[in-house]
Design a protein around this nucleic acid. Structure first.
Lengths: 165, 165
DNA sequence: CATAGATTTCAATAGATATTGAAATCTATG
DNA sequence: CATAGATTTCAATATCTATTGAAATCTATG
């Protein structure tokens, strides 16, 4: 992997780090994003990133569990390959969306805890609760709309996968 | 601070941790959220959380810089207080929103890097770019709508702050 | 403008997290 | 069903991050 690609992959990792996920998750995803063909074996990933097999094993397992990556085996070959799962970014956003509920619930618990009726004491928690309630309602709408609008693109991707197999 | 509140504050911290911010940021915010009156001095925060003054100093500085907390001084008192800034949650979401652009740019850089014209190699990056472009357009709309809908609530909060001072 | 209380800074360190690597396990094939 | 390549597991360790605490600095007041 050349210098420019290494830098790209490292920055992909940093972006994921900022975002609250592990850097290694981002690095592996980064390598897969710029791979042509778009799949890589565990061994290739380890070598391209200069990290141990064990590390790759743990990371690919997480990525698969998060539905961001899928295994890809070629008939007649023992080794497994990994590739980005279509809809991975949608999935990341869906997870974000679920976290909104945690924030709303935290606000509600706070209001229960705070038995004061003083509006100035309750204001921040009420604002928090109302804000996340609003987003919990709005996000699914926006996410669904994306799904509709990208339907034709998904169809093309499916066709392409079909032609290839 | 009683057992139940301590637990709440700790979980507030964990929620922030999951979210990609430091746990201490979340703890301090958590204490302020359930404080009545809604402001606390650095000393009170340190004591309630059982952490050093230095730690509080660094954390409040971050929270102020992030526009989540504001200083609050009472005339005739030397000591400073801190309280949650109205609109803090809106501000957190605004930051999230800005990160969307980083993801889109990362996708665009990837497409430049990948000189292959093979659609199956480009697919993931194109999906990533289109997805974040979509969200970059939609999020501000949804956030603005919140601002409108909560206008009357903000007005009430202002009145209340005015009555108190 | 000296004082004392309050706050900040930052080097040292405690504590948490990520990574390795070798042994154990798995799995497709002849 | 034995083999060899591939993968996973997990204890040990390296690395990174958070936290302390004491010295330095700041700031409102008489």
């Amino acid at each position: 992997m050349d210098e420019e690609r290494s830098r790209y992959v490292e920055e992909f990792g940093l972006l994921f780090g900022q975002f609250g996920l592990s850097r290694m998750l981002g690095r592996v995803l980064g390598v897969l994003m710029i791979s042509d063909p778009p799949e890589r074996s565990a061994e290739e990933l380890a070598e391209e990133l200069g990290v141990s097999r064990g590390s790759i094993s743990q990371t690919t397992r997480s990525l698969i569990q998060m539905s961001l990556v899928q295994r890809w085996s070629r008939p007649g070959e023992r080794r497994d390959y990994f590739r980005i799962k279509p809809g991975a970014w949608h999935e990341i956003m869906r997870r974000e969306m679920e976290a909104l509920g945690d924030f709303r619930k935290m606000a509600e618990r706070g209001l229960d805890l705070l038995d004061s009726e003083d509006p100035s004491a309750r204001r921040s928690l009420e604002e928090m609760r109302d804000f996340y309630t609003y987003w919990e309602k709005e996000m699914p709408t926006v996410l669904d709309r994306w799904e509709q609008e990208s339907q034709s693109r998904d169809q093309k991707a499916l066709d392409s996968a079909f032609r290839q197999s």
